[in-house]
Amino acid sequence: MIISLTVNGEVRDVAVEPHYLLSDVLRDRLDLTATHVGCEQGICGACTVLVDGQSARACLLFAVQMEGHAVTTLEGGAPSAELRALRAAFHTHHAQQCGFCTPGILMTFAAYLRDHPDCDEAGVRAVLGGNLCRCTGYGPIVRAIMAASAALREVADV
């Protein structure tokens, strides 16, 4: 069957079977490989994308459910202010080693920082609990997210 969905701002028609996962369709049919698959069980968070602006696990969605919806991946068009701030802070704070978990974390927090401009560390930790990272021990990731949040507030204050 052919479904029509918006991916990174472009309307795409894709031929899929009903059991195809969104993560596979993004990666294998649309060549958007920034979305990583670490477990296919909804646990690691590496596959997190935005669906209509909200973070969602692409391995837990069937592609057919996306008919008429808008999906944003890390590659997605012009990056939001949140994503730009996160990228800069992740680089400065060495918040990725192998980088495999990183796209999912960036997408999760691009949405979270947008919706929680005044977030505190406890809130960030609670949300980050949904993403597994085997390399960093999480400390630098938390520091980077807090730094990105502060940087965004500074810009907003100006």
Binding site: T33, A34, H36, L74, Q96
Partner: peptide, 18 residues
């Protein structure tokens, strides 16, 4: 800061399955 980061943060890294 690492030079590897740019591609990892941009989603441009290439792991085997990519």
């Amino acid at each position: 800061p690492r030079r590897e980061d740019h591609r990892l943060l941009a989603g441009l890294a290439r792991y085997v399955d990519d």
